[in-house]
C-alpha cells in the first residue's frame, strides 16, 4: 500500500485531511492527545464551575417557573461536564487527576465564571450572552476531529439552545417591564458584554496554539473569526431588546458586511486568566469544599456496593 511509506504522523495527518474521525484506540501523536486532554478537561471544568454563578440565584429566582428553569439549566451544566470528562477519559486521563488539577489551580476553566452574578438580570445575560458565545464556540466542535469529543458536543449543543433562549426571555421580560427592570437589564449587559467577548480567547496573533489546532481540525475557526461572528449576531438582538451595547465603536461596516467594534481590555483578560479576577478565589474554594464534603458519600457508596456484592456472593 502506498501509505506504508509515510511516517505515522503523516498517515495521521492524511486521515485528518480526509476528515476521517480519530477514535480512542487509534494511533495519535502525543501532542494531539495532550492538546485534547487539556482542551476537553478545561471545557469540562468550565461547565462544572459554570454551575456556581447560576446556582447563586436558584433560591432567589423571581417565580417558581424561573426557578424550575434555572434548576434544569444548572443540572444540564453538570451533565455537560460529565459528557466532557468522559470524552477526556477515553484519551487516558483519569477523572480524579483532572479534578485534582482543577482544585490545585493547575488546570484552567473559562474566565467568564470569575465574574459575579449580582442581579437577577445577570441570569438573563449569562444565558443570552455567555451561552450564546459558548454555542458559537461549540457548534464547530461538533465536527472536531476527535470522535468522542465531537459526539459529546452534539449532545451539549442540543441542550445549549434552551439555555440561550431562556436567557433571552429573561432579558426580554425585564426590557418590557418597568423602567427599573429595564435599567437592571442594561446595567447587567454593561457588565457582561466585554467579559463575554473575552470568552473567545486572545487575539489570533497572541494565540500560539491556534495554528496547530486548526491543522489537526480540533478547531475550525480562529478566536477572532468567532468573536466577529458573535458581535454580528448580538448587536441586532440587543437593539431588538432596546438595549445599548457598551461600546461606542460598534458600527455597521457596509464594506466588510460586519460590525466594527472596539478593543477588548486585554490586561483585564490576562489578569483574570492568571487568577486575579473578582471571583477566582471563591469559585475554586466552593469547588474544593463541595468535593471534600462529598468524600464520605463517595466512600459510603463504594462500601455499600462491596457489601451488596458480598451478600450476593453468599446467596449464590
Amino acid at each position: 500500500m502506498e501509505t506504508s511509506t509515510l511516517t505515522p504522523e503523516e498517515q495521521f495527518q492524511a486521515r485528518i485531511d480526509a476528515d476521517v474521525r480519530i477514535e480512542p484506540k487509534d494511533w495519535m501523536p502525543d501532542a494531539y492527545r495532550k492538546t485534547l486532554i487539556r482542551q476537553i478537561s478545561q471545557h469540562a471544568h468550565s461547565e462544572i464551575v459554570g454551575m456556581l454563578p447560576e446556582g447563586n440565584w436558584i433560591t432567589r429566582a423571581p417565580s417558581l417557573k424561573r426557578k424550575s428553569i434555572l434548576l434544569a439549566k444548572v443540572q444540564d451544566e453538570a451533565g455537560h461536564g460529565l459528557y466532557l470528562y468522559s470524552a477526556a477519559e477515553t484519551l487516558g486521563a483519569s477523572r480524579d487527576q483532572m479534578l485534582a488539577d482543577l482544585h490545585s489551580g493547575k488546570a484552567k476553566y473559562s474566565s467568564i465564571f470569575n465574574y459575579p452574578t449580582l442581579s437577577w438580570a445577570d441570569m438573563g445575560c449569562v444565558g443570552w450572552l455567555v451561552d450564546g458565545a459558548a454555542i458559537l464556540n461549540q457548534v464547530p466542535l461538533c465536527r472536531t476531529s476527535y470522535g468522542p469529543y465531537a459526539r459529546a458536543m452534539v449532545r451539549v449543543c442540543k441542550e445549549e439552545s434552551f439555555h440561550q433562549r431562556q436567557g433571552f426571555e429573561v432579558m426580554q421580560t425585564l426590557c418590557e417591564g418597568s423602567a427599573a427592570q429595564k435599567e437592571m437589564a442594561q446595567e447587567s449587559l454593561n457588565r457582561w458584554w466585554w467579559p463575554t467577548l473575552m470568552m473567545f480567547g486572545p487575539k489570533d496573533a497572541d494565540s500560539p496554539n491556534t495554528e496547530q489546532s486548526m491543522k489537526w481540525r480540533i478547531k475550525r475557526f480562529t478566536n477572532d473569526e468567532l468573536r466577529q461572528k458573535f458581535v454580528d449576531m448580538m448587536v441586532p438582538q440587543a437593539e431588538f431588546l432596546g438595549l445599548t451595547v457598551p461600546d461606542e465603536k460598534v458600527q455597521w461596516n457596509e464594506e466588510r458586511q460586519a460590525y466594527d467594534f472596539g478593543e477588548v481590555n486585554w490586561d483585564e483578560f490576562w489578569a483574570v486568566v492568571k487568577g486575579n479576577g473578582l471571583c477566582n478565589h471563591d469559585r475554586l474554594q466552593a469547588r474544593v469544599q463541595a468535593h471534600e464534603e462529598g468524600a464520605w458519600v463517595r466512600e459510603a457508596a463504594l462500601a455499600h456496593a462491596a457489601k451488596r456484592a458480598a451478600r450476593a456472593a453468599v446467596a449464590a
Partner: peptide
C-alpha cells in the same frame, strides 16, 4: 451513548 462512573450497577 457514552460512559460514567458509579459504585455499582444499580447506581
Amino acid at each position: 451513548v457514552g460512559s460514567l462512573h458509579a459504585a455499582d450497577a444499580v447506581m
